[in-house]
Design a protein around this nucleic acid. Sequence first.
DNA 1: CAGACTTTTGAGCGACCGCTTGAAATCCCT
DNA 2: AGGGATTTCAAGCGGTCGCTCAAAAGTCTG
Lengths: 221, 221
Amino acid sequence: MTPSDPRTAATRRALLDAATDALREVGYAGASAREIARRAGCNQALVFYHFDSVTGLLLAALDDVSERRLAEYRDTLAGARTLRELVDAAERVLAEDVDAGHVAVLTELLVAAASVPGLDVEVEARLAPWRALAQDAVARAFELVPLAGMVPPEEAAHVVVATLLGLELLAGAGDGLATTDRLFDRARTVAALLEPEPGPSAGPDRATEASRAPRPRTARP
Amino acid sequence: MTPSDPRTAATRRALLDAATDALREVGYAGASAREIARRAGCNQALVFYHFDSVTGLLLAALDDVSERRLAEYRDTLAGARTLRELVDAAERVLAEDVDAGHVAVLTELLVAAASVPGLDVEVEARLAPWRALAQDAVARAFELVPLAGMVPPEEAAHVVVATLLGLELLAGAGDGLATTDRLFDRARTVAALLEPEPGPSAGPDRATEASRAPRPRTARP
DNA sequence: CAGACTTTTGAGCGACCGCTTGAAATCCCT
DNA sequence: AGGGATTTCAAGCGGTCGCTCAAAAGTCTG
């Protein structure tokens, strides 16, 4: 065979897809070279021939997923001209990735990076563009909010929360306990967007409160 | 030796502590019987003699941690009479557990439960009392908030966010992507507590806005 | 001290791991 | 068709895994 043989590329692709599926379905610990090769329908030695190591294959799968999705995310977010468009577009693209298992690959590697020596720096480097994208999405949301006076506050919160969820997913794994302050800051931001221009001393106004931000009714005897 | 020999109990305790440490320091994948026994300073066969299996030891370690802490959490939360007390007590106890690595044990098992067949139901059963405790804490916070008119809104948010963080930690691992709606609901709750009685149509009041909930200034050309 | 009982130990079994190797299979080029 | 480069494969190496087992070592009862 030759490097330009389409069957060679097909093998690499089969291994990448099998690695993605394995990572999603049986986790990092279960994604062994033999298991991935079995799913790809080829010999396990090909993992090492094409990707040097199992870790190399898994990181290549992460690269593959990233490259296929980053551009679409960027276009989708940049193209939004209203908050409604941003909400819809972000949720649509995110839903695609959840269905395709891309997010599972990411989280699986994030979890593994926390305990596999040396893997953390590799994963960190590959997360940088995602972090930048998420920051851009937040900035874009903040840019659109003042222009969207006709959008209900719930919509504004929805997009911000959805963005924060992605940001949290990408940034938070492994050090959840250190994020109290960060989460607090974000909660205030969400609140600011829910109530963009509240009264200064804010006297009671129970007539409208219930329909806007109902207080939970958790019973406690 | 005999069952009442204090040295037998010491062995069990050493194994439990070693399992906790290993789970925290080298993760689930690294917490093998040989590794735990090495840390405990005994033979690896004792893991199986005393706990039947490695998984059994790890779950026993979780039980051990839970039983040692649940009572203290319950007393601490139930004893709080003001929001300030609830904030301080919750943070103090949580900080203890973080230092002791109890939270790491929990999250490590939660992560493992997502990919180790059969482990999920075992972990789930052991999480039930923690979930109930977290729900109680939320209910207690909501109960105290209306009584705490003199407490700054930041304090109210702080306790709620800290509680939500714990709730998220206990409930969220493994299905992060399914929590958009839940997170949204909670963000609205936090917002409601930050701004308990906002103005209805809320005309602009830029004099006070900046000092209360500053809008992020993320640059975007 | 002898025997019953529990705890601890070291050796070992089969299975799977990441990875290597040498040879076979396949394709391109002349 | 034949030579050379590349891709694929079966087999195997050293290692760790969970777990078992027979025997040693300890403690208690007679």
